[in-house]
Design a binder for these strands. Structure first.
Lengths: 145, 145
DNA sequence: CTAAAGTAGTCAGCGTATCTGACTTTTACT
DNA sequence: AGTAAAAGTCAGATACGCTGACTACTTTAG
């Protein structure tokens, strides 16, 4: 679909990609050696831990892939696996201390990039953008929390 | 960066991913066997053909990776390589007949998904979204055409 | 007008990410 | 109790993407 005026999806991709690149670069530069795929999984872990299959669904990869990435994150000390008290089959992937520190750096960069966007778009349009995307999520994200 | 209220980047990713998945599924279902990575390159090819390095830059992969994917697209008959008349070092990747047909299917699905978004958001907000993202592209896409 | 520097693209080798399919263990339903 | 479903793992295969090194052509500077 070659086009001079990219569709809305592509426009979102471009901006997203910029955010992702900036965040990952900063986290890696801070000495937390994490890959893009690992970060995409890590990002989805909830405050009380999340099951592997849920992470897989949300990141849109198979559970095998998610398991593979969680293995790496665990070996690097970013996450830990604990038994799920409510279901003997399941285990919860939880953010560990080192992961928390890396997450804080990431959050800082996210705030920084968003501030740049506000500076370029203006506060009003940035607010609209966030609201519209949140609304759009209702029909595009089956795993909306 | 686990969070209940995802940042704007993640929100864009979710919607983008939905669009991408829908388009790719439709194209593959129509018998055009193309992978995600191939589609991301293909999508960037301009109407008069585009150089490999440009495709690589825009898709944010190395030129080797882009070359690898263009090889596959060429073998499958989606694109063709022609010499660049203005520069003997370069060749232009151009969309071939089969690619054009696949691109038409993709464009149809894009229109369909966008129509769903308009139905959910309203015409006004969809217009704002497009405008805002286009504006945002000024600072997030160094390769904006 | 030639030497140096830069750009387009390819080749080779490697590691990461992702998939499909098959299996184990534990729930949940009837 | 007995079967179906769900969570997770194991094994094997493929696709993707990277770095480094190379060739060929073009541009620039002296």
């Amino acid at each position: 679909m070659p086009q001079e005026t990219p569709n809305v999806g592509v426009l979102m991709f471009v901006a997203y990609r910029e955010m992702e690149r900036r965040v990952l670069d900063a986290v890696v530069a801070a000495g937390y050696d994490v890959t893009l795929a690992q970060a995409r999984i890590f990002q989805r872990i909830g405050p009380d831990g999340t099951r592997l299959v849920e992470l897989a669904d949300q990141a849109q990869v198979t559970k095998q892939t998610a398991g593979f990435l969680v293995d790496q994150l665990e070996r690097a000390g970013f996450v830990e696996r604990v038994a799920d008290p409510t279901d003997g089959r399941a285990r919860l992937v939880r953010i560990a201390e080192r992961g928390r520190r890396a997450g804080e750096i990431a959050a800082g960069v996210v705030a920084e990039v968003e501030a740049e966007w506000v500076a370029h778009l203006g506060k009003r349009r940035m607010g609209q953008l966030r609201d519209t995307l949140t609304k759009l999520r209702e029909i595009t994200d089956p795993y909306a929390r």
